[in-house]
Design a protein around this nucleic acid. Structure first.
Lengths: 160, 160
DNA sequence: CGCATATTGTTAACTAGGTAAACAGTTTTG
DNA sequence: CAAAACTGTTTACCTAGTTAACAATATGCG
């Protein structure tokens, strides 16, 4: 625990010897996350999908006939919170709910052809904006960042 | 309709032919950010400071006699949103508001001795938990991650 | 000086994105 | 069959912000 070293007198000394926020991964992660999310919304404009709605659509495209409960688990949110998201996607005619034959509790989710098109277009748009936002990073740096982020995500033992 | 076969393919195929969420920095950033934030709250327990309250306290410790407006700008939030945060810190007796001589509009913020102690203790606690959460990363990887995150943050041209 | 304009802290109303609890319909299990 | 569990849903609530308005105060300028 050499980390908690110099706690110097900060009363009138503005020279910032104090260990501060900037040394925390969490703080820098939040700043970066906010910047990227802002970019995402700017990329999709006024009537565009929100990040969470896009994530949901993406998973429905990748997993046809998925149930809302499974989808909620994948997204890491409660299934009650997913209802509004699916309502929105259904209203935009990007997916359909249909009763699962064999288990009438389940509403199987399926992306419409429109939904698949919107998904691919949106993904391309977001990727283009991310590339612009991250223009200061080399391809190798982006790859490194991606792998480090995935490593952190894996250490989150709660999210099934 | 003709895509039935293709749809069925992705159903059980984990090889991910479809470009997906995982290729987006933003998605992986969010997952990592959520994991770290959860860890932060767990580290500080039930009655602990929230991330934003800790950030505010940190900046007040580093910048004695700062005004609420300047602090809000540093935090990247509206000054109206800062009022509740400062209220909480004042109630916990971790800082004081005092009228700035020379400009009676300004409430100069100053951390109390208690506030400085709580700040340093909290920082140490959070750092320890981050170290545990990020145990899979080497020191070099953590340093790299930090620098890449700061690079992204810098590209956020709006926050002034 | 006087007056328009700007700034500060604050409140109020609103939004986004969730959680937790309860519920009816529908399996599943003992 | 009865009890337990699961699914989608509604309802009430929470957190962390935003925007708009406001009074008090400060500043620029003719």
């Amino acid at each position: 625990m050499a980390l908690h070293a110099a706690a110097k007198q900060t009363e009138t000394d503005p020279t910032e010897v104090v260990p501060d926020l900037e040394t925390l991964i969490g703080y820098n992660m939040k700043r970066a996350y906010v910047a990227i999310q802002k970019d995402f919304r700017a990329a999709l404009g006024e009537g565009g999908l929100s990040p969470r709605t896009f994530s949901a659509l993406s998973l429905v495209v990748a997993h046809p006939d998925i149930s809302q409960s499974s989808l909620a688990r994948m997204l890491g949110i409660e299934r009650s919170g997913l209802v509004a998201i699916i309502d929105e996607l259904e209203h935009r005619k990007l997916l359909t709910r249909s009763v699962m034959p064999g288990d009438r509790r389940i509403q199987a989710l399926m992306a419409t052809p429109d939904g698949r098109v919107v998904y691919h277009d949106t993904l391309a748009t977001v990727q283009a904006h991310e590339d612009r936002l991250l223009a200061d990073l080399t391809a190798a740096e982006k790859e490194t960042l991606m792998q480090l982020l995935k490593k952190i995500r894996l250490t989150d033992r709660e999210s099934t």
